[in-house]
Amino acid sequence: MNKLILFGISIIAVLVLLAVFAPFISPYNPQAIDVENILSPPNRVHILGTDSLGRDLFSRMLYGTRVSLEVGLVAVSVSLIIGVLLGSLAGYWGGRVDNLIMRFVDIMLCFPTFFLLLAMVAFLRATIFNIMLIIGLTSWMGIARLVRAEVLSIKEKDFVRYAKAMGAGNFKIISRHILPNALPPVLVAAVLGMGGAILTESALSFLGLGVQPPTASWGNILMEGKAVIDIGWWLTLFPGMAILVTVLGYNLLGEGLRK
């Protein structure tokens, strides 16, 4: 195990612990309004300060960790399902199927992702689930291309020919013999994708189009912080650092796994 993996995993492990035990760690209810402590800077009572409704920033950020990790996991699962399915279909069958699927990938890549996200949000309800879904629906193309390339090279290998000669069905060949061997690069892409999905969710929430208040997400804390940016720097500094560290964790892990 190299240093990058170790470093990345430790960051993610700490975040997972914080997310799981958020109710026990957080000193306050993340929704509790404290009118006597509005916009108080970091101090001994509120270690990261409070927002413009007097809610404890540290507690809100802890619960925001849950949102971010969930978004990364679910969005990437969605993009994995679509990407692996279409990628292996294209690579295994080739010909017209391949052509059709790869043109579809090309077309999807033409859309500026954020335009597509915005248009989809405009037609859907902005629930956490929908946000995770549409991030997944707009980010599977890289994985599909990757899986296709892997399948193309693996399907010519001797052990696949052998399995075919032994009379194994197409589904069995793909799921038992090809995909397990295509796993390592897909895993790297998935880990890096989680960081990307977390960034996207935070940007959407920051624009007010992602996770809706009062549910706390790092992005929407930043949005509320922008309104008071000249008097409440802590509302801008800390949630952004949380996003940076989290995404860095996934990127380090992904880069470590690549080697």
């Binding site: 960081g195 960034l199 935070s202 940007a203 920051f206 930043l222 801008t236 952004g240 996003i243 940076l244 995404v247 860095l248 990127n251 380090l252 880069e255």
Partner: peptide, 10 residues
């Protein structure tokens, strides 16, 4: 690495 992980809006 930092650049890849930093949200542009932040």
């Amino acid at each position: 690495f930092l650049g890849f992980s930093l949200p542009a809006f932040w």
